[in-house]
Amino acid sequence: MSRNHSRPLSPHLSHWKWGANMLVSILHRMTGVGLATVGGLLFAGWFFAAASGEESYACFLGLLTVESGAINIVGAILGIGLTWAFFTHLFNGLRHFVMDAGAGYELQTNRHWAIAVVAGGIIATLVLWGWLLWPAIMGLVGGEG
């Protein structure tokens, strides 16, 4: 639709002071787009590789792992990145359900939960990957693992 150029637009991103609620709003979109594109392709590709036989599946895993089966740098970036995107999108999705019900719009409450979503996404990612990589971490520092 054409717009009347003599009338003002509402102030855009560059005019607002950044707050936690704005950060979590754009993060929701960015993580959603990342999950939908990179995540969606890997997700469908994994099923397709598994259905295409052992060789194709090994080829698919070979993109993300080194020969010993441990994760390689591509796998680590995609895996940890998608995990963070998943948890952030998930937690903010839950926040949106509460806001859809009409709750949580008070300034302090809104800010509090926006920060909790960002922190929760990071913490959940660290916990999951710390747990997954625990044997490797122990091996590196020479513990009994």
Binding site: G40, L41, F43, A44, F47, F48, A50
Partner: peptide
């Protein structure tokens, strides 16, 4: 992509 994934699961 959904068709590829669903067919793959069914095939397995």
């Amino acid at each position: 992509a959904a068709a590829v994934a669903i067919f793959s699961i069914a095939k397995i």
